[in-house]
Design a protein around this nucleic acid. Structure first.
Lengths: 157, 157
DNA sequence: CCTGCACCTTCCCATCATGGCAGAGTCAAC
DNA sequence: GTTGACTCTGCCATGATGGGAAGGTGCAGG
């Protein structure tokens, strides 16, 4: 089947199928004389796998590893599980960050009357940074700070 | 002060300050004879505002609007609140999506023994798509489907 | 057989916010 | 004057995806 049919059947756009081929996430598809790509059930199966992994938020980089494990009959499910757990942590971290932002903004919005006057705690907090979760603060508990930055950051003006 | 100091003081990298200027998110900075950008407290204030807005996940596009409202003495806090609420919805939506992925993957990982054998429910679900949340499924309750797609999608091969 | 159209090919550009690098110029401390 | 930190501009890269142009292919209907 052609790339269009493969796209529809797998749920991966033709554009992306070509892209996946170009970055060698999938092997180069068979070609007809005309140069048209030709797909079979095996290819569809692989594209479906990729799509499901994308639906779970895996990066293409990690999907490449998963595909390798998939096609490895001697794989260890511990390896798969480790990748999955690392990914879960990432997802949770990102979700937590988004929720923190949403929570902070919600409390600001709740404090805003929205009655048409210019007074606005949201704007005020953006000005001062009060109640705004510092992005990535807490990721690096203590700045490594290279021992003796001798003449760095000279005071000027 | 120079861009480096402004960057350190505002928490916005010099690179980004130049970028913000290039996309006209901030006005073109004053220049010294040498071409060096020169920043004052007003500029720092604005950069801080932008940084806090970024920390809340606002896009630069929306920050442009917020800056406009900020500098408008006759603004309506209702406008600000509306933008904030739209953004909260976006954040919540994205967080929900991430959490759905994490939940799905967690249940798959829980079902995986991780004992070193090849059997793996995670891999199996990626193959079949079972228990994998279809990305964006439910967003479009009913496909609009143009009335009569006469000769579209011909069956080939 | 010809025409038209849906489909395919490759290649380039855009997104969004950010970082990195290179080559050249500037500033201030010593 | 030398040195080294800093700044300038400009280009490239990221990740995953979409859009489009320019040109070739395949097939059905006339």
């Amino acid at each position: 089947m052609n790339i269009g049919q493969a796209a529809e059947a797998s749920g991966v756009s033709a554009k992306m199928i070509r892209y996946y081929e170009s970055i060698e996430l999938v092997p180069r598809a068979d070609r007809r004389e005309s140069g048209y790509r030709e797909y079979g059930v095996t290819d569809l199966h692989r594209l479906g796998f990729i799509r499901h992994a994308r639906d779970l938020g895996f990066s293409l980089e990690r999907i490449k590893v998963l595909l390798g494990l998939w096609s490895d009959p001697g794989r260890s499910n511990a390896d798969v599980k480790a990748i999955a757990r690392a990914h879960i942590r990432e997802l949770e971290g990102r979700a937590r960050q988004l929720n923190e932002m949403a929570d902070a903004l919600r409390s600001l919005a709740d404090a805003c009357d929205g009655d048409g006057r210019p007074d606005c705690p949201i704007i005020a907090s953006l000005e001062t940074g009060a109640n705004v979760p510092a992005c990535h603060a807490g990721d690096a508990p203590a700045a490594p700070e290279p021992p003796v930055p001798r003449r760095k950051l000279r005071a000027r003006h």
